[in-house]
Design a protein around this nucleic acid. Structure first.
Lengths: 213, 213
DNA sequence: CCTACCGATCGGTAGG
DNA sequence: CCTACCGATCGGTAGG
């Protein structure tokens, strides 16, 4: 569970009596905090992590830079929140999809999931994929570990698809990375008004899983 | 033609008589200059463009930062040189491949070209694909124009492949971007000691162009 | 949530 | 190709 999720567990809880507890931040606080993450991912996407300033992020929310520190501990912390959100979105339903028995349907579900997830939030994944260098200390290893877990699901699905003659035999690790690549690259060229995430997901599936012979 | 190429046209020229012309830099100068570009692409790949300092680039060549200014005009100029090299490598043989008549063979050649080119220099293309935000002024538009030209070759090849029933019918622009994506993503996971560019290129072709029915 | 400010980093230059 | 240095930017904090 990400710290973003952890901090929002109070949302929807019953009205509490007496002095409000400051350990459980208000809904408005959480909403604003999520907005900081969204806005920052847009700024960092356009300018890069280092060049994108907290002044810009703040300005886009009609705030001053200092006020952002009410929501995040530091710029590096903000970046970590972006990464947590991206990896959480990726891992969210993957267990469920990985439970699909039929190898072809399972691989299709995984490809579709990756394509849709990235295409639905290109800015988020632009930062996730392109600005990992900004992470500090343990964050790098934490993200890498979660990403390896994610890759594993794909590798297993690819292996099973090869056994079922749904994919040509090849190095499963390489194939998995390549399939993730084809469905992730969309954040580089996606135009949200012109391109539809579901159409793109269909396309990826179509290119890799041609009709059975 | 890139400024990198333009500046190196003296290489291999006959020994000149009289006072050496300073307009035609020496071979050693050009070699060193190319090394700056290579080293910088490694540094910027790891740290990002803004976080990667000229001190680091210089140190990796046993120089002081100030000495780099003998080879490049500015940090932004250095970044432009990296981009020029990447786009030149990409465009180098594409005209030749695009002359292939058979749609299947042509598309295969283009995919193979992209896969090999990127896999042969992951650091160069990591900067090219992930740190475009560092470019200033006209450089952004210049690179974008060359990239559109490159994409066009792919789109035409994809259209012809669809007409020849080598690819399923779909939006050619989207398919071209996706094929470029699958063959470019390799810079993200490539391990030069473990992964072979040609094996990877074969894999991409195999995944997209299954044996004719 | 703000104004005002400090301190470190780093691109770039002077001058040799 | 170097030493020494300047100047701008920007993350972060004090204090309210």
């Amino acid at each position: 569970m990400s710290s973003e999720q952890r901090a929002s567990t109070s949302a929807g809880a019953a009205r509490k009596r007496g002095r409000p507890r400051h350990e459980q931040p208000s809904q408005e606080y959480e909403t604003k905090r999520r907005e900081v993450v969204s806005v920052a991912s847009e700024v960092f996407r356009m300018q890069g992590y280092d060049a994108g300033t907290l002044d810009e992020v703040a300005a886009a929310m009609n705030l001053r830079k200092a006020s952002l520190y009410y929501y995040v501990k530091s710029k590096a912390d903000l970046l970590r929140l972006i990464f947590d959100r991206a990896i959480d979105r990726s891992l969210e339903q993957i267990e469920e999809y990985s439970a699909i028995e039929d190898p072809r349907n399972r691989l299709e579900a995984l490809i579709r999931h990756q394509a849709r997830t990235v295409a639905n939030d290109p800015a988020l994944f632009a930062v996730f994929f392109d600005h990992r260098a900004g992470l500090e200390g343990d964050d790098v290893a934490d993200i890498a570990a979660k990403e390896r877990r994610y890759l594993r699901y794909f590798i297993v699905a690819v292996e099973d698809a090869m056994d079922a003659n749904v994919l040509p035999k090849a190095d499963p690790r390489m194939v998995a990375a390549t399939l993730i690549g084809m469905s992730s690259w969309v954040y580089k060229w996606m135009d949200p008004v012109r391109d539809d995430p579901v159409v793109f997901a269909d396309l990826c599936v179509q290119l890799i899983l041609r009709p059975r012979d």
